[in-house]
Amino acid sequence: MASDIHMGYTSGKLRTEILRGLSLAVDAGQLTLIAGPSGCGKSTLLSILSGLQRPDAGSVVALGEDLFRGDRHTLDRFRLQHTGFVFQGFNLFPALTALEQVMLPLGYMGVADAAARERGCAALEEVGLAGRMHLLPAELSGGEKQRVAIARALVKQPQLLFADEPTSALDAANGQIVIDTLRRIAHEHGTTVLCVSHDPRLVTHADRVLQMEDGAILGPVHA
């Protein structure tokens, strides 16, 4: 999927190389975990693999498409059609109910309201929030918020799902639910789930674990 990725930041006169010629392939229909200490470049790698950030050099091919060949709009469209995201912070709109959060991206994809509602309900049911659809984020617990965020990513029926430290703000029980949900999505929907985390609890649940350090993949560790 990714080959020879280079990425660095310039801060003042200092140039920091974060990714140094990294290459990697991720399997479809699996939960792949990229683990590593903080600062090793795993979040940067995720943002490049998901088309959020353009690398200094190298290419990413996803679903047969070279992500960084087109312009910004092509990239936006690719993400809208094919990718879902779950972030460490839940980033839910305070004004919208759980169901509305989930329906929101569908509106931008051109899905009609009735169909969006149906798909939104189904997605929330899948993450176990059928009874809490009409609550605002302020009325939900942290674990529930993250499940709404997962439902929001899931409802688009993406082929690619990216998760960045999805459990770091959650307690053990809620973290467990989130991991199980991500894994189930990979296996039941055939979605390629790429998760970045330094949470050791995740390692045993991933189909494949890639250990990362200092901007390079050390090698696969199969769970």
Partner: peptide, 16 residues
């Protein structure tokens, strides 16, 4: 105040 939520939408492919 809502920039993270807007950024999330943008990540999900909603255009600027």
């Amino acid at each position: 105040g809502s920039v993270r939520e807007y950024a999330t939408l943008h990540a999900l492919g909603v255009s600027l």
